[in-house]
Design a protein around this nucleic acid. Structure first.
Lengths: 257, 257
DNA sequence: ACCTGAACACCGTTCAAGT
DNA sequence: ACCTGAACACCGTTCAAGT
């Protein structure tokens, strides 16, 4: 077996998959700012230049890493027109995403024009999963909006999101607006939340420290806001805005824009 | 006059302001990715190392540049409780921001609890101006959400936004949620729009090229979406989502969350 | 007080050379 | 086919030296 045991001690042979996995792990652990080809190579027990055999360049590396992250986003069951028992997956949304009650809208309507598959639950499920994924990989949201290429997992994500809206009755201009409004909220919230990403407990120390040297008289409302965030987690902010948007869209959907 | 004419030929002496101005101009023209201390120095007729006399380091340079951009955001007139004739400034909002009619909400209510100053118009004005500013300086939105320090102009922006909401009756948790939902929309939309920032006309070429090598059968809804964006500008997407959010917030305000 | 030159410890990427 | 070493053209930042 000369091929399999190419390397004597441990290390399996390098592949694109192993490079991308190591890249994601490294970015998760140390941030994407300090990730260099040379350091990533070292992590894999290889000279940095060897990576160019499996990756075109650093942008290609980033695209591959980002698509791995995109693949983690939990899309609602394929639920195409011909797919059976979509309801079997939807209930779990209620379990894992309990905040739906914040603003009842679609549920209370007995609309004959309503689609068989609740578009609102599907969009909500996808958005919550995307948000959680961005939080798991704090470097990924910034990359998502940068101009790195779009891989197959991201394409699938986008296609699914657009299809769900389309099948719910959104069309043309309104479809486009609905789609972008939801996506903007996801990526905007992730970026803002991650801009202040701090280790647990660090928030209190930072906030207190900040307020000490802060011109409270000059910016009293900002000071109050910081004080608020030192005490409250604000965990529900994402779903609050999401529900606000989804409710508004549902209203426009039934009235036809 | 030995001090004023320190330099013989032209060039005024270097100051922090001149460094920041040049930084903004350079980032506007060539992007922030290629802005280096050395190249910025050369632009100013100086060795890159000289910049460290006016700027602590590159992060400090970025903070200063970003705060200059923040200062460009047009805040609604001070309009504090004691400020007279706020109405004198608000009308211009209607002129420069004509899309308000998209979804009537606050105007039609004759609410005795409504604040004297229309919070919705003020929030809308500020958001539209912030959005336009981010578009003028395509590098700034990404910096806004990064962890560079917050300068005085940004503090003033944040304090004003929070005060307006506070004086409109939003309090505690709802104030925080309303604030973040609007800010997320602004920054999220800017980042997404700028991720595809292309020169005018470039869009058609890119979209057509992309669709040629695109697996249309695999992602039909995404393909349709791209086709749509080749033809339509989607200029109104920002204000659409903004109105959706502001309308939803107004509803929660009058019902008390 | 402000600027320069040299230096340090890094980058991404290419390419001939090895196996 | 895959990896290495050397090289190229860059980085941010520090610091002694100049004026």
């Amino acid at each position: 077996m000369p091929k399999q045991a190419g390397r004597p001690s441990g290390r399996p042979t390098l592949t694109r998959d192993r490079v991308l996995d190591a890249g994601v792990a490294m970015a998760d652990a140390e941030g994407i700012g300090t990730l260099s080809m040379r350091r990533l190579g070292k992590e894999l027990g290889v000279e940095g230049m060897a990576l160019y055999n499996h990756v075109k360049n650093k942008d290609d590396l980033f695209e591959g890493m980002l698509d791995r992250v995109a693949a983690e986003i939990d899309l609602p069951a394929t639920g195409h027109a011909d797919a059976p028992s979509v309801g079997a997956d939807a209930p779990s949304a209620g379990a894992a995403v309990p905040g739906t009650g914040s603003a009842p809208a679609a549920q209370s309507r007995a609309d004959p024009a309503a689609p068989r598959v609740d578009w609102r639950s599907r969009a909500r499920w996808r958005a919550v999963s995307a948000h959680a994924t961005f939080m798991r990989h704090p470097w990924s949201a910034a990359l998502w909006t940068s101009s790195v290429g779009v891989g197959p997992a991201r394409m699938r994500y986008l296609d699914t999101a657009l299809r769900d809206l389309r099948e719910a009755g959104f069309a043309d201009g309104l479809l486009d607006l609905a789609f972008h409004t939801v996506e903007n909220h996801i990526v905007g919230h992730a970026m803002q939340e991650l801009g202040f990403s701090l280790a647990p407990g660090e928030m209190e120390a930072m906030g207190a420290e900040l307020l000490r040297s802060f011109p409270v008289e000059e910016y009293p409302f900002l000071a109050e806001h910081i004080r608020y965030h030192v005490e409250e987690t604000g965990d529900d902010a994402f779903e609050f805005g999401l529900d606000l948007i989804l409710d508004g869209l549902e209203r426009l959907r039934v009235t036809g824009g």
